[in-house]
């Protein structure tokens, strides 16, 4: 019998779902073994009956062996969908960094909801100012939560988005009844750049001009970007973006520094704390870094990591 799969996106961007589609022909090959019973991006199963006349208090998700959820939890609807997914899926996968650590949308956790509403519905140049929408739309929660702040998560698949190789590995391992083999080291570990020690570095600079490298030569000949004085989050970020047999981390392939989109190396690590500590221990003045909280917790602001500043209260 085919494996029943349910998929949902909460406070998400659909990029994780596109990453699934980017399995390409591998997805077609897997398709006969999978039975997608629910996946709003691709198929038409509805929460409240196919005729839209169901009880709004009973959100329906079909039973499935495997559930994939992308996105964090931002409003009441997300919470209800997540709880229904948990209740109906045997194994629940947090798909993507929004689901595992809040992701980019959790940057809002540095602000109070009221500030957001004020700006969005009354402050923008093009706006005809009006009260916040409140009718028939799901109320906001106080902030953005990662899935495991609300329900139990069985498998964590971070990445913004996760590499298709690892999505395939998670599904295949499940089909074969084994633990998925996922990377657990840091991005630096998968990075081929040349490391010679930091030299006289006392500060890190903003990415206002390109890194120094010879475009005719491979990435393995480029000096580590952190050693070049650019902030690179590789040391404190979970490896994975280079895929199963990738040449280099994705951003490094474009010759730009890592910004930490796979979240911390350990699921409960703190990218900001670890990066500041790494810089400070190497004698780099951390005050030379602009936007420290928003920059270093760019992808992992859930779990109470990013909070409104007292001054903003």
């Amino acid at each position: 019998m085919a494996l029943r799969v349910a998929e949902e996106g909460l406070s998400s961007c659909s990029g994780c779902e596109v990453a699934i589609l980017n399995l390409g022909e591998r997805l077609l090959a897997l398709a006969p073994q999978l039975d997608f019973v629910h996946m709003p991006l691709l198929m038409d199963h509805k929460y409240f009956g196919q005729l839209g006349d169901g009880d709004l208090k009973r959100l329906e998700i079909p039973q499935a062996e495997l559930g994939l959820v992308s996105g964090g939890v931002r409003n009441q609807e997300h919470l209800e969908v997540l709880q229904a997914m948990r209740a109906n899926c045997g194994t629940l996968v947090a798909l993507g960094t929004c689901a595992t650590h809040g992701g980019i949308p959790a940057l809002i956790n540095g602000l109070a909801n009221a500030e957001l509403m004020e700006r969005y519905y009354r402050g923008c140049e093009t706006n005809d100012p009006a009260p916040d929408p409140t009718e028939t739309v799901p109320p906001f929660l106080e902030r953005v939560y990662a899935l495991d702040e609300k329900v139990k998560v069985d498998i964590y698949l971070p990445g913004c988005p996760p590499h298709p190789d690892h999505i395939a590995e998670a599904v295949l391992a499940f089909l074969e009844g084994r633990e998925p083999a996922l990377p657990h080291k840091s991005v630096c570990d998968a990075c081929p750049t040349v490391r010679q020690g930091k030299g006289q570095l006392k500060s890190v600079r903003r990415f206002l001009q390109n890194a120094q490298y010879d475009p005719a030569k491979p990435i393995a000949d480029m000096r580590c970007l952190l050693e070049q004085g650019l902030l690179c989050m590789g040391p404190v970020t979970r490896a994975g973006c280079s895929g199963a047999d990738g040449e280099a981390p994705r951003c490094l392939k474009a010759r730009v520094p890592c910004r930490g989109c796979y979240g911390p190396v350990r699921q409960n690590g703190n990218q900001m704390l670890d990066m500041l500590n790494a810089l400070a221990s190497n004698g780099i003045d951390i005050k030379t870094l602009p936007d420290r909280a928003g920059g270093l917790l760019r992808f992992s602001g859930a779990h109470g990591r990013l909070r409104p500043r007292p001054a903003a209260k």
Binding site: M272, L273, A280, S281, I286, R292, R309
Partner: peptide, 20 residues
């Protein structure tokens, strides 16, 4: 001396967490 260097990190974290 190492502890001293890390002081800056703790200060920064307190600020991010909204602690005095």
């Amino acid at each position: 001396i190492k502890a001293q260097a890390r002081l800056a990190v703790v200060e920064e974290m307190l600020d991010a967490y909204g602690l005095e």
